[in-house]
């Protein structure tokens, strides 16, 4: 079995385990390359029809191309879409310039997600994070419990032996499931190429720059690049030494912002 098929099979196994275990399962979909790959893997796991909703957290500050791409995929794949939005904070005008970035992320993303989980009663969520994105994500488990306050008890994570994952959540927990943990950025692009997946045009270079990691408009910087196709992105990754999330503001506030954000329930 080749490398990509090995990664794919491991992910499908995890997706099916989570669907078996959890009565109310949802998946987070940012419309980026990773979570779109995850949507595709879920389609494979369930033979074309995903039996649970996909959740889009809308901060109101995403790129227009992201909304357009989202609606196109929903249509094409028949997805059951839930939009999660913190309208109260948006009405107050919360943004990256009104205080610390940590506060903006926490209100517009983490709080929006908390509310969405409460309304829909999700007991587990699939997320497309990968270990090679960030040092703190390198420490994640495939199945990662969060308490009622969303806290991640990273000093006391459950053991995860072979393919045996943490069991059914009781009332105060929800579980984060990470079926793409073992994929690298380059694997994602090779897989997109192999499977001919649709991909958001923001990843392709325009005027000498492209987005390598997508988030909100004010906190996302494009990197210098001429790569305007999947093939060219793969070629660029072969030589690039720029960190994938170099354009993401949250990672730079201080060395532990991601740890703080993730402990508070950030994705």
């Amino acid at each position: 079995m080749d490398h990509l098929s090995e990664l794919e099979n491991r992910s499908i196994y995890i997706i099916r385990e989570s669907y078996h275990q959890f009565g109310r399962l949802g998946m987070l979909w940012s419309v980026g390359k990773d979570s779109t790959t995850l949507v595709w893997l879920c389609r494979k796991a369930f033979f074309g029809r995903i039996p649970f909703p996909v959740i889009y957290i809308d901060t109101g500050r995403h790129f227009p191309e992201m909304y357009a791409f989202r609606d196109e995929c929903v249509e094409r794949w028949g997805l059951d879409l839930i939009v999660a939005r913190n309208d109260e904070a948006l009405a107050r005008g919360v943004g990256p310039d009104t205080g610390e970035k940590l506060t903006c992320c926490t209100l517009l993303k983490t709080q929006a997600l908390k509310d969405c989980i409460a309304v829909h009663g999700f007991d587990a969520l699939l997320l497309g994070i990968r270990r090679d994105e960030h040092g703190i994500r390198a420490k994640e488990r495939y199945f990662s419990p969060r308490d009622r306050q969303f806290q991640w008890d990273y000093e006391n994570q459950p053991p995860e032996l072979w393919d045996q994952y943490t069991s059914q959540a009781d009332d105060e927990f929800h579980i984060r499931v990470h079926p793409l943990l073992h994929w690298r950025e380059v694997d994602i692009w090779r897989y997109i190429q192999r499977e001919e997946l649709p991909i958001n045009p923001l990843y392709f270079a325009r005027d000498g720059r492209r987005y390598r990691s997508l988030g909100c408009m004010p906190c996302c910087e494009p990197v210098v690049s001429d790569a305007s196709s999947v093939e060219e992105i793969l070629e660029e990754l072969r030589t690039s030494k720029i960190a994938e999330r170099a354009g993401r503001a949250q990672d730079k506030e201080d060395a532990y912002t991601m740890q703080k954000l993730r402990a508070l329930g950030y994705m």
């Binding site: 270990r131 990273y154 060395a255």
Partner: peptide, 17 residues
């Protein structure tokens, strides 16, 4: 990568790279 690990100079949790 955890702050607690750097302060104490030890590894607490497994990580993959």
């Amino acid at each position: 990568h955890l702050r607690e690990e750097r302060e104490r100079g030890i590894t607490i949790d497994t990580a993959q790279t």
